[in-house]
């Protein structure tokens, strides 16, 4: 289980994440929603340790996140980050070297489904192919926590189905997924809980089916309510 306790991140005078408290339970898929700059990415980076919080703490199974938690946490950033001299194969080997839960076989299978070959150089990949590579290498791990930042960005329609399938494939009772996306309706079917972030605050976190049953509202409806004009004021 992942616990975020009053997590705050400030860059000088700007606040990226403001006293966010959120518990992520295993077996659930959390849809992180909100416009750019609302703090979703920064929050994810803090969970994986790339960014250090200004205050507050993040605990994984009771321990502060750090070296050990990174064994179990797989993060996919929005930006490309592989070394420019690497080929698709090199990227796989790198992950295999550092992550015990990485499966080269799964990697090859996912790459195949996305029409990527091992010999392609990271330098020459188009943005769409890079997006697919990032997903492939992340989902080829059998992690306990997946943090996917805009996994469907820049991916064509057919490949999107593939990725959604990949995501569904890893869902298990002991696995937690945190997925952020602008494609709210795509995410809605697959997620259990919708987490809305606005201007560095956590506005709301609620069960998706629950929202439909109790309020007759879909996530898309809530999204419009919260972020649209006449939405919830902070």
């Amino acid at each position: 289980m992942l616990e975020c306790k009053e997590v705050t991140k400030k860059y000088g005078r700007k606040t990226a994440v403001d006293h966010v408290s959120l518990n992520l339970e295993p077996g659930r898929v959390y849809a992180m929603l909100g416009p750019n700059g609302s703090g979703k990415t920064t929050l994810m980076k803090m969970v994986v340790g790339l960014v250090k919080p200004t205050s507050g703490e993040i605990l994984y199974n009771g321990q502060p996140v750090g070296v050990e938690s990174r064994r179990d946490i797989a993060y996919m950033s929005t930006e490309p980050y592989f070394y420019s001299w690497m080929t698709v194969k090199d990227v796989g080997k790198y992950y295999q070297d550092f992550f015990e839960d990485f499966s080269m076989e799964r990697y090859e299978r996912i790459l195949n489904q996305m029409d990527l070959t091992m010999d392609l150089k990271s330098k020459t990949l188009s943005s769409g192919m890079m997006a697919k590579l990032k997903i492939a290498v992340t989902m080829a791990r059998r992690a306990k926590i997946y943090l996917l930042d805009e996994p469907l960005n820049g991916i064509d329609l057919l490949a999107r189905d593939e990725i959604v399938r990949c995501v569904l494939d890893v869902i298990a009772p002991d696995v937690t997924l945190m997925v952020s996306s602008h494609l709210v309706d795509e995410l809605e079917k697959v997620a259990d809980v919708a987490v809305f972030m606005k201007e560095s605050h956590l506005v709301m976190a609620c069960g998706i089916e629950q929202m439909r049953e109790e309020k007759g509202k879909s996530v898309v409806d809530m999204y419009r309510e919260i972020y649209g004009h006449g939405g919830i004021e902070q």
Partner: peptide, 14 residues
């Protein structure tokens, strides 16, 4: 359950 989830592209809990 898993196959149903994949078929309808829904969460396995659903």
């Amino acid at each position: 359950v898993r196959d149903l989830a994949l078929q309808y592209t829904i969460n396995p809990n659903t």
